[in-house]
């Protein structure tokens, strides 16, 4: 699904990612943990092709294609989804309009027929029900006045609608109360499947009780400092990142 090799990337001239190797197979869920400022969100932006995030060395191959050939919206249409750590507000743009426009843009790209209002609403209803998203939220501007938890649920709603092949969820669990966490995790688990892979960024092993990962990686100083199975998360919870933040250049 995704093959990252020797990836270096800088932001505004500062190198943030300093040689990342990561391979994510079809249907796998990988978790990335790591101290603040270690480059987790940066990695998600690089994967999404955000302007200003420049790959200086290495490569990213996604479903057999070199990602550098694709711009942000092409990557999105090809099935890369980013659940934002800080979802952005779009005042005056109703969520319904936004979601329909996005879904139809992606469908157009995939050569599928666009959905009309009725077909779209039908589909939307299924997901809003499951994620406990009110009509009032859909009518309001995208993320405008949403609570932290509502914003995160809205990200999962978008993921569910857009049906990506590869989803990066950047701290989707932060700011969620325990009930919302379960709802979000259920939403994510419902999307797990043999053809879909995920990269879940989190600070808390708690999330991984609900979304059980196949692999856990620690990102520190722009590199994968350690990888392991789901028990690594438990160990980190216990010991913290001490051994990684010390600044020792792990091989």
């Amino acid at each position: 699904m995704l093959e990252i090799k020797g990836l270096h990337a800088d932001v505004d001239g500062t190198e943030i990612l300093k040689g990342i190797d990561l391979s994510i197979g079809e249907g796998e869920v990988h978790a990335i943990m790591g101290p603040n400022g270690s480059g987790k969100s940066t990695l998600s932006y690089v994967l999404s092709g955000r302007d200003g995030y420049n790959v200086t060395a290495g490569s990213i191959t996604y479903r057999g294609r070199d990602l550098s050939e694709l711009n942000t919206e092409e990557r999105a249409a090809e099935g890369i989804f980013l659940g934002f750590q800080y979802p952005v507000e779009l005042p005056g743009v109703s969520s319904t309009t936004f979601l329909k426009t996005a879904l139809n843009a992606v469908r157009r790209h995939r050569g599928e027929e666009e959905l009309d209002a009725v077909q779209f609403m039908k589909r939307l209803r299924v997901h809003t029900k499951a994620l406990n998203i009110s009509d009032d939220m859909l009518r309001r501007g995208v993320n405008v006045g949403f609570s932290g938890g509502e914003k995160k649920r809205n990200e999962i709603l978008q993921m569910a609608l857009l049906e990506p092949y590869f989803a990066v969820l950047d701290e989707t669990d932060s700011g969620l109360d325990i009930d919302a966490l379960k709802v979000v995790a259920e939403g994510v688990n419902a999307l797990r499947g043999p053809k879909r892979s995920m990269l879940v960024i989190t600070h808390y092993q708690r999330l991984l009780d609900y979304i059980v990962p196949d692999y856990v990686h620690v990102l520190a100083h722009g590199r994968i400092a350690r990888s392991g199975g789901k028990e690594l998360a438990l160990e980190l919870e216990e010991k913290g990142y001490g051994e990684f933040v010390a600044g020792t250049e792990a091989a």
Partner: peptide
């Protein structure tokens, strides 16, 4: 805002007009 829209598959132009 533009990046958020584009990450959801909207072109630059669509993103801008929407915002």
């Amino acid at each position: 805002q533009l990046f958020y829209c584009r990450q959801r598959g909207l072109s630059d132009e669509e993103a801008l007009s929407m915002i």
